[in-house]
Amino acid sequence: MRRDKYLLALIGLTAVSMIASLYLVFVYVPTERTMGLVQRIFYFHVPSAWVGFLAFLVAFVAGIAYLARRDWRWDVAEATSVEIGIAFSTIALVTGSLWARPTWNTWWTWDPRLTTTLVLWLYYVSMLLLRQMIENKERQARFSAVLSIVGFVNVPIVFLTIRLWRTIHPVLFTSEGFALESSMLLTLLVSLLTFTLLYFCLLWLRVRQEYLRAEIDRMKDQLLSAS
């Protein structure tokens, strides 16, 4: 494919950024005083949660674009983004749980961010299940576009509801700026960049795979109708 050299460049950039963040996380950044070594999971936990959220945002935008334009490529972007979003929310939930055990002394708590992530995870997994149960391609695309829009609109509402209910999760970004030491902030920002680049690599590869699949299907049809 023509754009493959851009894809290679993106993968290269991601690799460099990945090595840089690994260095920062394991060598450069000082160990946090009260929580100790386990706090380093933070630099994977926060970026995973962010990418999960970003992926669902992309799916929301692609869903709207599909309903407006009816181009199957928007549907591919939406469905693949949801897949990646589920993978990263799973990582965020697991790393969060591992971190919560030594610091909060519990594996799980019904905090707004945790609960919202879990609710999103459940919803989008159900959405992919529904996709698989519809044979008609066009209907599949239409339904999942509507579902990705409804799901994302619900995010702030779920979050506010549970915040009204209870919270113990630390707030990193307050109105006065970041509540983080500068070396830790740098590490976090580089990790966020790495994970975001990784997301776009994965999205590109998945979308490319789906295009190739469509191309093969088209060629098969051509061959069958010719013979």
Binding site: S126, M133, I134
Partner: peptide, 19 residues
């Protein structure tokens, strides 16, 4: 309109109606 019919509705509806 799906194969599973009744089974799919609660899966989608309960997460959305959490609030």
């Amino acid at each position: 309109n799906t194969r599973a019919r009744e089974a799919m509705l609660p899966l989608l509806l309960f997460p959305i109606t959490v609030p």
